[in-house]
Each structure stands twice: as structure tokens, then as C-alpha cells.
Amino acid sequence: MELHTLVTLTIGVALLTCVLAVIGVHVYAKGRAQRAALVERLTSTGQIPVIGRRRHFRTLDRRLRRTTVGRKLELRLAATGLDVTPGEFFAAMLALVAGLWMVGQATLAPFFGPIAGLLGVWAAVQFLDWQRQKRIEKFINQLPELARILANATHAGLALRTAIGMAAEELEAPAGEELAQVANQLAVGATMDDALGEMAERLPSRELVVLVTTLVLSNRAGGQVVSALRNLTETLEERKETRREVRTQLAQVNMTAYAVPVLGVGSLFLMNGVKDGALERMTGSPFGQAAVIIAFALYTVGFILIRRLSRIDV
């Protein structure tokens, strides 16, 4: 009797589980269809952009965005203009670190594996800084044209908000993308000060700060924004030429800063090539490991000092 009751209970639980599974699949499919229909409707009306490509590492991306490091990484990626999520970049960085770790351990010595991995992290951070600086330089080169468009639009009687939207449509990236973001923030109720201030934080530069300050003060006080923007256009053109000359003069110094650590790493491969296993024997003792760490630290200090001494703010 007890066995019959147990069998009946088991069958009942199994049937209930199957029914709940079917209901769950039905609800999931219905929700997925509704979401697809909503996305299609909003995309056709232009309210959301068309998704360019399928994103990878979505689970990693969601978990990474919840952390402080993930949020900072997201801001860095937004400043670079790269179409990469924090999860994708983090996964690529891990792959780079693992690859360099194995290469350093296999070609030089096991001691150089972690050092090569740290070099991969440094290279990834430097890549982001380089992309961000390149985007800033390109944006600075567009500032004279941006100021000219704003001056002509305001001279024609258009409001500053409308002038910013017009400039976003006429200018190419990155200025067009940044101004489009400012126009979207203004459309949802953000103030002019906050929208322009966030743009200045994403792409920090003296030229942009001057332009943002001019626009904010003119918007607050209602001054002669046309004459101010036209004078600013001439100043930005002169600063653009000056920056180009300074960058040309410092090109050799910047190459020296990167050549110094490259020569140091190249000497390690040369030493190991002259006498196979020399680096492994050298790093087999604490004194050899300390010497290698001190050498890498000195190369890093030299790189930073050369970069700092060659930095001229215009």
C-alpha cells in the first residue's frame, strides 16, 4: 500500500513538473516574441538604433558592469569610441595576458611568464589611452569647424540647442557622435551645463573646455554668442597649427621613449639566443630575479620620465 502511494506521488510530481515546464517554455517563447516585435517596431520608427553586430561574453559583461572596475572600464571604452563592450575587452585582455605568459615562459624562462602577463595588462591599458588620445586629437581638429557652425546657426537666429543638433548632423565622428549625445541629453530634460560638462569630461582638452565655458556662459547670461564663437574659431585655428608643429618636433622624443624598453626586452632575447638557457640559470637564484625586477623597474621609470619631459601643454 505504501509502495503504491509512493509511486502515485512520484507520478503526480513528475506530471506537475512537466506541466510547469511546458508553461515556462510557453511563457518564455511568448515573451521573446513580444520583445522581438517591440524591437522591430522601435527600430522601424527610428527610436532605437539598429543593432550592428552580435555581442559576445554577455554574462561576463553583465557581471563586470556591476563592479567598480567594470564601470571605470566602460567609461574608458566610451571615451575611445570603440564598438566593444567591457566584457569583450576584458576577455580579449585575458587572452592577451595568457598568450604573453606562455610565450615569455616558453621562449625565455618560467620566471618571465608573470612579467609578460603584466606587460599584457599594461599594453591593453596603453591601447585604451592611445585610442582615447587619438579621438581627443581628432575632436580638437574639428573644434574650429564646430565653432563656425554654431556661430553661423546662432547668427541665423536659431537657439543654441537647435544649433548643437544641426552641428551633430553635419560633422563627422567623433564630434558628430558627441554632439548627438549632447542633443539627446538635452531632449530628455538635461541642462546645458550638465550635458556639455559630461562631454568635456569624456574628451578632456583645453580647447573643448574653452568652447564649453563660452557656450555655458552665453547660455546663462544671453551675451553675444555669435561674436564670441567667431573669435574663438580664429583662436582654435591658431592653436591647431601650433599643436601640429609641437607634435612634429616631439615625434623623435616620443619614439625614443618607446625604443628604450624595446631595446631592453630585445637584449633578453639576444642574451638567451647567444647562450641557450642563460636566462633560466640567471633567474634560478633570488639575486638574479631581483636584478631582473630592478632592471624592468628602471626601464619603466625611464619611459615615464621621457614621456613626462617631452609633454608640452599648448
Score class of each variant (00 low, 15 high):
residue 208 L to M: 10
residue 138 K to Y: 06
residue 181 Q to P: 02
residue 190 A to K: 08
residue 190 A to W: 10
residue 136 I to G: 01
residue 182 V to R: 01
residue 134 K to Y: 08
residue 205 S to P: 06
residue 143 L to T: 07
residue 155 H to T: 14
residue 188 V to D: 08
residue 192 M to V: 13
residue 185 Q to G: 13
residue 133 Q to T: 14
residue 210 V to E: 14
residue 158 L to Q: 10
residue 181 Q to I: 09
residue 231 N to A: 13
residue 166 M to P: 01
residue 210 V to H: 09
residue 203 L to C: 10
residue 211 L to S: 01
residue 174 P to A: 06
residue 169 E to T: 11
residue 197 G to N: 15
residue 225 V to S: 01
residue 160 L to V: 15
residue 233 T to M: 10
residue 199 M to F: 06
residue 200 A to P: 00
residue 133 Q to S: 12
residue 143 L to M: 11
residue 131 Q to M: 14
residue 205 S to R: 07
residue 188 V to P: 03
residue 179 L to F: 09
residue 133 Q to W: 08
residue 207 E to A: 14
residue 189 G to H: 04
residue 142 Q to R: 03
residue 232 L to W: 01
residue 151 A to H: 00
residue 181 Q to N: 11
residue 215 L to E: 04
residue 218 S to G: 13
residue 189 G to K: 02
residue 196 L to A: 00
residue 228 A to E: 08
residue 218 S to K: 00
residue 228 A to N: 07
residue 177 E to G: 08
residue 155 H to R: 13
residue 140 I to P: 00
residue 233 T to P: 02
residue 219 N to V: 07
residue 141 N to D: 14
residue 189 G to V: 08
residue 160 L to W: 02
residue 159 A to F: 07
residue 176 G to A: 03
residue 144 P to T: 08
residue 192 M to Y: 04
residue 179 L to H: 02
residue 159 A to I: 08
residue 132 R to M: 10
residue 191 T to D: 12
residue 160 L to G: 08
residue 144 P to Q: 06
residue 187 A to N: 12
residue 192 M to N: 02
residue 206 R to I: 12
residue 185 Q to R: 14
residue 137 E to M: 12
residue 146 L to T: 15
residue 170 E to W: 06
residue 206 R to S: 14
residue 134 K to R: 15
residue 169 E to S: 14
residue 140 I to C: 11
residue 235 T to Q: 12
residue 179 L to T: 00
residue 160 L to S: 05
residue 234 E to M: 09
residue 191 T to I: 07
residue 224 Q to D: 15
residue 201 E to T: 11
residue 171 L to Y: 03
residue 162 T to W: 01
residue 147 A to N: 07
residue 201 E to Q: 13
residue 138 K to A: 13
residue 147 A to F: 04
residue 224 Q to L: 09
residue 133 Q to Y: 07
residue 179 L to W: 04
residue 152 N to D: 11
residue 139 F to G: 00
residue 182 V to L: 05
residue 172 E to T: 09
residue 149 I to L: 14
residue 203 L to S: 13
residue 128 L to D: 05
residue 147 A to S: 15
residue 184 N to L: 11
residue 229 L to D: 00
residue 214 T to F: 04
residue 145 E to I: 07
residue 146 L to N: 02
residue 150 L to Q: 03
residue 224 Q to R: 09
residue 231 N to H: 10
residue 190 A to N: 11
residue 200 A to T: 07
residue 206 R to T: 12
residue 213 T to K: 08
residue 234 E to R: 08
residue 202 R to K: 14
residue 214 T to L: 15
residue 170 E to V: 13
residue 151 A to I: 04
residue 168 A to F: 00
residue 167 A to N: 05
residue 142 Q to M: 11
residue 136 I to S: 04
residue 198 E to Q: 15
residue 231 N to P: 05
residue 129 D to Y: 09
residue 162 T to C: 03
residue 199 M to G: 00
residue 149 I to V: 15
residue 208 L to K: 02
residue 211 L to A: 05
residue 162 T to Y: 04
residue 146 L to D: 00
residue 167 A to Q: 03
